[in-house]
Simulated assay, not measured.
Amino acid sequence: MNIRAKFRCYGVTETRDDATKDKVSEMVNLQAVHSDDPTSENAKWSKATPAGSMIMTISNPEAFGAFEPGKDYFLDSTPVT
């Protein structure tokens, strides 16, 4: 079964090399979207996935900036076979 959840980025924290000051990673904080308003577009996501969190460290420079605080993202899960 594939599952799609909707998460919001609540923060991105950069880590830099002390010597070079180059960015070496980003830590991304994602939380499941939530809405108490039944007319909200996020109401169905709140019902299906009422809670959830994910903290991810990204060390690939090509992926830096992929997540922005305040933006929503779909997270899809597909079983590995």
Rank of each mutant, 00 (worst) to 15 (best):
T13L: 09
T13A: 08
T13S: 11
T13I: 07
T13N: 05
E14F: 07
E14A: 14
E14T: 04
T15I: 09
T15A: 14
R16H: 15
R16A: 13
R16P: 04
D17K: 12
D17C: 07
D17Q: 04
D17T: 03
D17G: 06
D18L: 04
D18I: 08
D18H: 03
D18P: 06
D18K: 13
A19C: 05
A19D: 15
T20N: 10
T20V: 11
K21S: 10
K21D: 15
D22P: 06
D22H: 10
D22N: 13
D22A: 13
D22F: 02
D22Q: 15
K23G: 08
K23W: 00
V24W: 05
V24K: 09
V24A: 01
S25E: 01
E26P: 00
E26D: 08
E26C: 05
M27L: 13
M27T: 15
M27C: 14
M27I: 12
V28K: 05
N29I: 05
N29P: 02
N29F: 10
L30S: 02
L30N: 03
L30Y: 01
L30G: 02
L30M: 05
Q31T: 13
Q31R: 15
Q31H: 12
A32Y: 05
V33W: 08
V33N: 03
V33Q: 05
V33M: 12
H34V: 11
H34Y: 12
S35D: 10
S35F: 09
S35Y: 03
S35M: 03
S35H: 05
S35L: 11
S35C: 06
D36H: 07
D36W: 10
D36Y: 11
D36I: 10
D36V: 09
D36Q: 12
D36M: 13
D37H: 07
D37V: 14
D37C: 06
D37P: 00
D37Q: 06
P38R: 02
P38S: 07
P38M: 01
P38I: 00
P38Q: 09
P38A: 04
T39S: 14
T39V: 02
S40N: 04
E41P: 00
E41W: 10
E41T: 07
N42W: 06
N42T: 01
N42L: 15
A43N: 06
A43Y: 00
K44W: 06
K44E: 04
K44D: 07
W45S: 03
W45M: 07
W45Q: 09
W45D: 09
W45L: 11
W45N: 02
W45C: 00
S46F: 04
S46G: 08
K47Y: 03
K47M: 12
K47H: 11
K47V: 11
K47D: 11
A48Q: 05
A48F: 11
A48P: 04
T49K: 01
